[in-house]
Design a protein around this nucleic acid. Structure first.
Length: 429
RNA sequence: GACCCCAUCGUCUAGUCUGGCCUAGGACAUCAGAUUUUCAUUCUGACGACACGGGUUCGAAUCCCGUUGGGGUCGCCA
């Protein structure tokens, strides 16, 4: 065990943002790497905006991603009495003054503050750029920078790993550390994560909250894997790696000092990689959940049936959402008929004729297995001297409404004889 | 505007600290070919970057300065 202590300090005024999740992830990785302690602190001093439902969701999302904490959650709101004494101490020392009910910290002019940042290197600030800082607000509550310093000190935080947006808070906080006689921790400021277009990741970019990716049907290990790649690269260059593998080679100083843009395409690729690594059995529960969210009734879905479909499509979907659009023909009779597919495979007279003939031949197949279906198709092809493809393509489209999909004969077997023939006949007229 | 951070393919990056092995490597995406009943997979290939300008040096993606561009912060929000 090392004495390294890091923290993640979200405020429950919204859902867990992707950027915050990434910050939490890097803190966690570092703590686990060095055998340190990961502390969770909830910055809920803003009574107006802090909500229990946000807090619950944040904790849930962190756990979902595999980020567990060793201490906490500590709530700032429960520590409110601890800040005033420190402010009064500074008042006594003459380092702060009162302005009405507020207590203000006097910032000396023209002093140099050096920050030895673990990611950026040395950064120099001059106090002449910093005006006097509020410690205690008129309503008696502590200002953010002040309680942040006291909390971090009380909790023995040794490394503060946070976003670049806090960089300009750092000299102010260092001033407080020194005035209060606290040890100054080490700082590491990570460049922010941006949207695809290079501007701040915001709602108009689509998903900005972790739960949205959960909802869309991403695997937690894939999201975590992608997020860690935004600003960090494993030494061996292998991009698909689980949290515990990342822990083995992670270091703060290896975090990139460049802003990174969030790219859903790569996330989808990684997610697809994880999906194919999983067994169909492991995917069944989350897919079932997704289906329920989409309005499917649990009791209408046969477990074995679903399992066979997952097996068939495992290599072809990258999110659970994609799985559903790919496989609607297995669950609904009113699946969408793709216009292009229809034009290509079902609109011509001869396609319809082929469809009708194949359907007729299929009726004679006793055991409706993919092997027998294929045999039937090949025989028909030889007998009529029409290429097998002429039967296969219209059938695929009639049965699924699509141009592509899993192996047709396997699909037909899973769907079952009655459904297959009914659909073929429907489109052969 | 002031202060701070940053600048390698469209995107994530390796290389930068410790200058030469870099005619700049990998991954995602895109495009083309092969395989496949289709789609996807897989394989092969193509496209594609050191922001610009000055230095320093025998030699610069790598060091220094400037310009441009992007981002952050300037709340009694957190």
């Amino acid at each position: 065990m090392s004495n390294v202590r890091v923290r993640f300090a979200p405020s429950p005024t919204g859902f867990l943002h992707l950027g915050s999740a990434r910050t939490a992830l890097f803190n966690w990785l570092y703590a686990r790497r060095v055998g340190g302690t990961f502390v969770l602190r909830i910055e809920d001093t803003d009574n107006q905006r802090s909500k229990k439902e946000f807090l619950d969701e944040i904790l849930k999302d962190l756990k979902w991603m595999g980020l567990d904490w060793d201490e906490g959650p500590f709530f700032q709101s429960e520590r409110s009495s601890l800040y005033m004494p420190h402010a009064e101490k500074l008042l006594e020392k003459g380092l702060a003054y009162k302005d009405g009910e507020a207590i203000i910290f006097k910032v000396a002019d023209d002093q140099i503050i050096e920050v030895e940042d673990l990611i950026h290197g040395k950064i120099i600030f001059n106090t002449k750029e910093i005006k006097d800082q509020v410690l205690i607000k008129s309503d008696g509550s502590p200002a953010y920078n002040f309680c942040c310093v006291i909390d971090d000190n009380d909790m023995g935080i040794t490394h503060i790993v946070r976003g670049d947006d806090h960089l300009s808070n750092t000299p102010k906080q260092i001033l407080f550390y020194k005035a209060l006689g606290f040890n100054v921790p080490k700082f590491a400021h990570m460049p922010l994560m941006m949207g695809k277009d290079g501007t701040k990741l915001s709602k108009r970019h689509g998903g900005v909250a972790v739960f949205e990716y959960k909802q869309e049907g991403f695997l937690p290990e894939a999201l975590a894997n992608y997020l860690m790649l935004l600003g960090w690269m494993p030494k061996d260059g292998k991009e698909i790696l689980a949290l515990d593998e990342a822990v083995k080679q992670f270091d703060i100083s290896d975090i990139n000092n460049v802003q990174a843009k969030f790219d859903v395409d790569k996330l989808k690729w990684i997610n697809g990689e994880y999906i194919r690594q999983k067994k169909a059995e492991e995917l069944r529960a989350p897919i079932m959940q997704k289906m329920e969210e989409e309005g499917y009734r649990k009791e209408n879905i046969d477990k074995e049936y679903l399992l066979r479909i997952i097996e068939l499509y495992k290599e072809r979907f990258r999110t659970f959402s994609e799985f559903l659009t790919l496989t609607t023909c297995f669950f609904k009779d009113d699946y969408v008929m793709d216009e292009k597919a229809f034009q290509k495979n079902l609109s011509k007279e001869e396609s319809k004729k082929c469809l009708a003939e194949f359907a007729k031949a299929l009726k004679e197949v006793k055991e409706f297995t993919s092997k027998n279906i294929e045999e039937c198709c090949r025989e028909l092809s030889e007998r009529t001297e029409i290429k097998a493809a002429q039967f296969i393509h219209p059938t695929r489209t009639a049965v699924s409404g699509m141009l592509g999909g899993a192996g047709l004969f396997e699909m037909m077997e899973v769907l079952g004889k009655d459904k297959v023939i009914a659909r073929m006949e429907k489109w052969s007229i």
